[in-house]
Amino acid sequence: MDQTKIPDEQNSRRKFLKYILSSWFGGFCIAVFYPLIAYLKPPEQSEVTVTSVSAGSLSDIEKESGKIIRFGNKPVILIRTQDDKLIAYDAVCTHLDCTVQYKKEMGVIWCACHNGKYDLNGRNISGPPPKPLMAYRVTLKGDEILISKQT
């Protein structure tokens, strides 16, 4: 073998190995930093807010009407009453878990499944529901309606 060639060959092999090493390392950096950067990017809903949820603005809800608001995994019914009070209750009927709605004509919270009725204090007044609806607290922050769990 040619004596002069050996270091050269070694050199090129070494260079090649370094080249491969650095490209693997580059890939490694991507594999590590891609999830990290994605993790640090603030998510759409930037914070956990399960103890209170925004129910839109006051102008979005008419007098004498109700609206279903998603509260965590549960629906909550927000009602603006005739005398312009805002009230909110758990919207899950205590009978068979249907979602209740506000019935303007009857002035009650009504469940379409079995005609269960609750008065505007959440009490079960007619039909099969065995228990009253749990109340939520409604607060106004400027024009924004906030619903929170009662503590």
Binding site: R70, N73, V92, C113, H114
Partner: peptide, 20 residues
């Protein structure tokens, strides 16, 4: 999957309503 889980309630409700 909480979004779909939430909708699952609606589906269950439609079954209740169908039974009525």
């Amino acid at each position: 999957i909480s979004e779909a889980k939430f909708k699952l309630r609606d589906a269950a409700q439609s079954k209740q309503e169908a039974r009525t």
